[in-house]
């Protein structure tokens, strides 16, 4: 996987550029990290506040999905170049899994 640290043949020329990039990335990581903690707090709060389970379940699941996306894109660097194939396979897997679960929920009678 290509990453920003190794694709430069001339470290001095690109130093400023890489510095700027790293700073940007660091900022995004801090922002997402804060949001993830915030989401976790909301999730606990939602359960603690005693809403109906028809609200809490989908809501917490939604927060979980957003967290997974943050994790993959900002902490595991999937937003960088060179991750197209893993992305393709992950989304294919998600699609196949989703269709399976959907079918089990809809067309299997109990």
């Amino acid at each position: 996987m290509a990453n920003l640290q190794t694709n430069s043949g001339e470290p001095k020329v690109n130093y400023e550029y890489r510095r700027k990039k790293s700073a940007e990335e660091m900022r995004m990581q801090v922002v997402t990290f804060t949001m993830m903690i915030f989401f976790t707090v909301i999730a606990f709060a939602a359960v603690g506040a005693g809403f109906s389970k028809w609200f809490i379940l989908p809501f917490v699941l939604l927060l979980a999905i957003v967290q997974v996306i943050f994790q993959l894109y900002y902490f595991m660097h999937m937003s960088h170049k060179g991750h197209e194939v893993p992305q393709f396979f992950m989304y294919s897997g998600v699609l196949v899994g989703f269709v399976t679960v959907l079918a089990f929920l809809t067309i299997i009678w109990w």
Binding site: S92, L95, V96, V99, A103, T106, I107, W109
Partner: peptide, 20 residues
């Protein structure tokens, strides 16, 4: 891709209903 979207055609007579 389509290979994953068609499995129930082996089970038409199982009683999945007309929509499925």
């Amino acid at each position: 891709f389509l290979g994953f979207m068609v499995w129930a055609h082996h089970m038409f007579t199982t009683g999945l209903g007309p929509v499925a």
